[in-house]
Amino acid sequence: MVPTLYRILAGFVVGVLVGGSLGASAGIYPNIAQFLLPFRWVLSSVPGIVLVILAMLWCGVGSTMVVVIVALTVTPTLYLGMQEGIGAVEGNLREMARAYRLSFRKRLTELYLPAVSAPLMSSCVVALGGAMRVAILGETLGASQGLGYTLAVARSNLDTAELYAVALISMLMVSLIEVTLLRQFRKKLQRGEKA
């Protein structure tokens, strides 16, 4: 269970950082959004099993492969949430911020943070569920420990009780991550909006 949690969290953080920063850039600069559109389409539409096989070819089997798969799954969801949130800020407000020469920090906290907080949180919750699914799939096909590996052993032994136990543990892990980390993240975003 611990290796799976580590892999999911590591891949999730990488996906949030990459997807969030690319989404912010695309929301502010439409040319970047046009350039990144085909990549978003590809990453959003490729089945998880294809990502697993590609990651196995790129990284071999083990933890790195699972982290890469999770990051590739999380990135387009966070990208789209951030891009849509920033894109929702009216052009008039952006012009006014430029005209009054608001500092970057002021624009971030007063203009962009309120616009991205709701779509960003929704994207994180959706991405977390997808991250768990592909992490377990990746571990099932190419890891020697973790929930996915346990699932593969249970499948080969036709152990139905263990299959259900793995499914239950994975649901509990997603709930635990959402309740602890994502709620704290939401509180920080809301504090930033009020500030």
Rank of each mutant, 00 (worst) to 15 (best):
M1I: 00
M1D: 00
P3G: 06
Y6W: 12
A10Q: 09
V13A: 07
G19I: 02
S21N: 07
L22H: 00
G23K: 02
G23P: 01
G27W: 02
I28N: 02
I28V: 09
I32W: 02
I32Q: 00
A33S: 10
Q34S: 14
Q34I: 11
L36Q: 07
L36I: 12
P38N: 06
F39A: 11
R40E: 13
R40L: 12
V42P: 01
S45C: 15
V46M: 04
P47D: 07
G48A: 12
I49W: 09
A55E: 04
M56P: 04
L57K: 10
L57A: 10
C59R: 08
G60V: 08
V61I: 15
T64C: 07
V66M: 02
V66K: 07
V66D: 00
V67I: 13
V68W: 09
V70G: 09
V70C: 11
A71L: 04
A71G: 08
T73G: 12
V74A: 06
V74L: 08
P76I: 00
L78M: 11
Y79I: 06
Q83K: 15
Q83W: 14
E84K: 15
G85V: 05
G85H: 05
A88M: 14
V89A: 00
E90V: 10
E90P: 11
N92Q: 13
R94S: 10
M96L: 15
A97N: 03
A97C: 06
A97K: 04
A97M: 05
R98G: 04
R98C: 06
R98E: 10
A99M: 14
A99R: 06
R101C: 13
L102R: 08
F104K: 12
K106S: 15
R107E: 15
T109D: 12
E110Y: 15
V116T: 10
V116C: 11
V116F: 10
S117A: 15
A118F: 05
P119F: 15
P119G: 15
L120T: 03
M121W: 09
S122F: 04
C124H: 00
L128V: 01
G129L: 09
G130L: 04
A131F: 09
A131E: 08
R133K: 11
V134W: 08
V134N: 09
L137G: 07
G138E: 01
G138I: 02
L141D: 08
A143G: 13
G146K: 09
G146D: 04
L147I: 10
G148P: 05
Y149N: 14
Y149V: 02
A152R: 06
V153N: 07
A154I: 05
R155T: 08
S156R: 11
D159C: 09
T160K: 03
L163P: 05
L163A: 04
L163R: 03
Y164Q: 02
V166Q: 07
A167Y: 07
A167S: 11
S170C: 05
M171L: 15
L172R: 05
M173I: 14
M173W: 03
V174Q: 13
L176D: 02
I177N: 07
E178L: 04
T180G: 06
L181N: 09
R183V: 06
Q184D: 00
R186G: 13
K188S: 06
L189D: 07
R191S: 11
R191H: 10
E193C: 13
